[in-house]
């Protein structure tokens, strides 16, 4: 199985394992097994990433420049980042709070219950499948001739768009994003809730603690890292989202992904494409930072609630 001894290193590290390539420094033939995987991710993941990073620092003539990155400080791009971050933060917090509540309700129903299956399946669809379909769901619900809009107007005389058609603008994005953030929260928070052992509650009780005391001093602190981490994940999720906004927003490019789209598709202005790469890099920086924090919190959670 193992390649013939090729150097002194083998003799030093593996004298006692005649057949065992395991302890030896990576036997070359074993590496062949992972070659397809690494070739593929290099072409379709690492190269695109490098294209973005290098492009962000390159001018149209291919020379290195900081112009694109400096252009990120332009008013309209800063505004787009601020709006993107606000949208993501607001929907992350709303989604986290409401999703945690549903998660708790579902967890009390027991791991094999039908309620739990229904809820988790529905959440899986709404959280990960969303995008364009959700935008159309909301157009059918709250669009100009949507079910709820028409019902409120005809039956109750309320015009929800008296202050403007907000569904196709930032407020609409907040609503639809929250709609897919809540289910995502349920999915990512359920494992943490499952990790809470009934013995902790019973131990608290037998030591004299009330329900409130249990939540305040045991379940609360134990769930806090998971809750914060999940909120960060929700933030990254909303920040990266493109499809819903693309399908819903009718005018302008209020958020960063839509700005990148217009940079990609506009061939009018020179140097726009590399500006798009700079914005893309900006997004990666934000998301990577958030995911790093998420990873830290996740480690804490798994130590406590595994």
């Amino acid at each position: 199985m193992t390649a013939p001894s090729t150097g002194t290193l083998d003799q030093v590290t593996a004298p006692a394992t005649p057949r065992g390539g395991r302890r030896r420094w990576w036997p070359r033939r074993d590496l062949l097994g992972v070659l397809p995987f690494f070739v593929f991710v290099t072409v379709f993941l690492l190269i695109p990433t490098l294209v973005v990073v290098i492009g962000a620092f390159g001018g149209d003539d291919g020379r290195p420049t900081l112009d694109n990155v400096a252009a990120l400080a332009d008013g309209y791009i800063v505004d787009a980042f601020v709006r993107s971050i606000t949208l993501s933060a607001v929907t992350a917090v709303l989604g986290a709070a409401l999703g945690a509540l549903i998660g708790y309700a579902v967890v009390t129903a027991g791991p094999d219950s039908l309620v739990r299956r229904l809820v988790t399946s529905a959440c899986g669809v709404l959280a990960q499948f969303g995008g364009v379909t959700l935008a159309f769901a909301f157009i059918a619900t709250l669009g100009l001739s949507g079910f709820v809009t028409v019902f409120l107007r005809d039956s109750l005389g309320i015009d929800i768009f008296s202050g403007g058609v907000w569904l196709f603008d930032l407020p609409g994005l907040v609503l639809v994003y929250t709609y897919f953030q809540i289910p995502l929260m349920v999915i990512v928070f359920l494992p943490a809730l499952d990790g809470i052992r009934p013995q902790w509650r019973e131990a608290t009780e037998s030591l004299g603690g009330s329900t409130w005391y249990y939540w305040r001093h045991v379940a609360g602190p134990l769930l806090a890292p998971a809750f914060l981490g999940s909120t960060l994940l929700l933030f990254a999720n909303a920040f990266s989202a493109y499809a819903t906004a693309a399908a819903l927003v009718s005018q302008g490019s209020p958020i960063v992904p839509l700005q990148i789209r217009s940079a990609l598709t506009s061939e009018v202005l020179l140097g726009r494409e590399n500006l798009g790469k700079a914005m893309a890099l900006g997004m990666v920086v934000v998301v990577a930072l958030v995911m790093w924090l998420y990873g830290l919190l996740q480690r804490r959670t798994s130590r406590w609630l595994d």
Binding site: V43, F44, L45, I47, P48, T49, L50, V51, V52, G55, A236, F239, S240, A241, Y242, P257, I260, R261, L264, G276, K277, A280, L281, M283, V284, V287, A288, M291
Partner: peptide, 18 residues
């Protein structure tokens, strides 16, 4: 897990030349 930190909208920017 890297694609989690690279939004699709970013990936598409780099995928165009590929």
């Amino acid at each position: 897990l890297l694609p989690l930190t690279i939004p699709a909208i970013v990936l598409v920017v780099g995928l165009a030349p590929v």
